[in-house]
């Protein structure tokens, strides 16, 4: 592994919610074209850290981030960085499917439109189709692109949200427990999709389910009480963890 495949590098990251110190001294290197899973018990800070990577925490008044997070060696908390531009590059999929109350087409076209990715209507049509295909939902919705996105089933909604996120051509895709609101069949579809997305993106996924982490990721990070306890190859973490806390968690004694 060479340094030029490192997409995201975090050094000494601290996050505070008001007086609450939520993330402590996190250092991590996330590789390009890899699926990295963040696991850990509830409230361990894995989602908080994920939201630091595209500065979603900026939208919370009381939240404060210190330390250094670099994407392609650019400090994303630099004053010159516009979070809006950053988020176009670092897409995000949320825990609960959150399609906008618009048509399926407009949901996917929303990002390209605000970022000005299409010059013509036909360009936009292409982008939408490509995104929906990559979201593995094109065949299901191609005949009803004008139908409201909220009318789809839960699994379809989440794949629509993934399509919406990839439509802006991000380089990193953050996924915050994307399957927690889905049934097993929809989960399987989304997991399959994540594996395909790895071809083009660096994917970071927060998950509650260790099985899911083992199934979809190459690297795994274990968070506990705001600390990054252990980070390494997924196989290694699940078979021979170094830290006793990691072992307790994957054997079901904590969390």
């Amino acid at each position: 592994m060479t340094t030029d495949t490192i997409k995201i590098a975090a050094r000494d990251v601290q996050v505070y919610y008001g007086d609450n110190h939520a993330i402590k001294d996190v250092n991590v290197d996330i590789e390009d074209k890899t699926v990295t899973a963040f696991i850990g018990p509830s409230g361990c800070g894995k989602s908080t850290f994920l939201r630091c990577i595209n500065r979603m925490n900026d939208t919370i008044d009381v939240c404060r981030v210190t330390g250094d997070i670099r994407i392609d060696d650019v400090d994303i908390y630099d004053r010159a960085i516009d979070p809006v531009q950053l988020r176009a590059k670092v897409g995000m999929v949320f825990q609960k499917p959150n399609p906008f109350p618009k048509s399926i087409y407009d949901n996917v076209a929303y990002g390209p439109r605000i970022h000005g990715l299409a010059r013509k209507k036909s360009d936009l049509d292409d982008i939408v189709e490509r995104a929906l295909r990559r979201g593995a939902i094109w065949d299901e919705v191609k005949d009803r692109l004008d139908a409201p996105g909220t009318g789809l089933s839960g699994g379809q909604q989440q794949r629509l949200c993934i399509a919406r996120a990839v439509a802006t051509e991000p380089e990193v895709l953050l996924m915050d427990e994307p399957c927690s609101a889905l049934d097993p069949i929809a989960t399987a579809q989304v997991e399959e999709l994540i594996d395909e997305l790895r071809q083009n993106y660096s994917v970071v996924i927060v998950t509650h389910s260790m099985q899911q982490a083992a199934r979809v990721s190459q690297k795994t990070a274990f968070f506990h009480l705001g600390h990054l306890v252990e980070f390494g190859e997924t196989d290694k973490i699940f078979t021979s963890p170094e830290d006793p806390r990691t072992e307790s968690y994957i054997t079901g004694r904590i969390g």
Binding site: V74, I76, I81, V84, Q85, I114, H115, G116, E169
Partner: peptide, 18 residues
């Protein structure tokens, strides 16, 4: 695919920020 550096705000972003 646009590959502008994050450090430089492109014209569109400036317009959007205005």
């Amino acid at each position: 695919m646009k590959q502008s550096s994050l450090l430089v705000q492109d014209a569109r972003t400036l317009k959007r920020n205005r």
